[in-house]
Amino acid sequence: MGSDNTDLKDFKLRPMKCECNYLSKSDGSAILSQGQTVALVSVNGPLDIKMTNQSIEKATLEVLFSSKGGKPAIGDRYKEHVIRQTCETAILGSLYPRTGITVTIQEMEDYGGFLACCINCTCLALLNAGLSMRHTFAAVACAIDELGDIQLDPAPAQLAAARATMTFVFDSRNKTLVCGFTEGSFSEDAHSEALERCRSASQLVFDFYKDIVSKYSYVIG
């Protein structure tokens, strides 16, 4: 269940490599590398959870983020929140009422664009777990440097020189914006240009998902 992807189009993302079902015990798992950035995600669910956390109309989603050091920081909690809300829009929670779905993300290597890598890896893990979803989602990161140039999927050197970094998440149906995460200062025009470029680049990520799924679909059939 492994694959890699390099493209020759205008929109260049760092090469992506993925292995689904990386963990044997969890219901769904995936490890994804985008360039040197690596994230590992495990999905468990639908599970039985405490009565107090149960929702009678939809599944309760829990996202746990573990950084490399293991100590949770405030920034990590914020990332958890972003990822949880992204997943909630995608998962058809109403099909699994009174249950819980746990998504655990482990940081392996962070060489820029880590949030995007986490989100893409989460999507692959959810696909692997076989949970019903409205749509898939793809995240693309970009950096804006001092001159106002937009760099897709930035490497650490480009991030250091960047004035602002942005991560956008799109759904697979109409490529509408699901979630945006920005840091730094930038103009409104730069934001909208970055948004459009990321939107176009997200197609590469969706193609990659299809590639991965088709690779293992033929084997299990």
């Binding site: 079902n21 219901d27 769904g28 639908p46 696909l127 076989g130 898939t136 998902y209 299990i220 059939g221």
Partner: peptide, 23 residues
């Protein structure tokens, strides 16, 4: 479609997605 896999059909008109799942 709500799951990732292969879309299958059985005559006359039953459709489903064959997907990987453990749970």
């Amino acid at each position: 479609i709500t799951k990732a896999g292969t879309l299958k059909k059985r005559a006359p008109n039953t459709f489903w997605v064959d997907n990987y799942q453990k749970r």
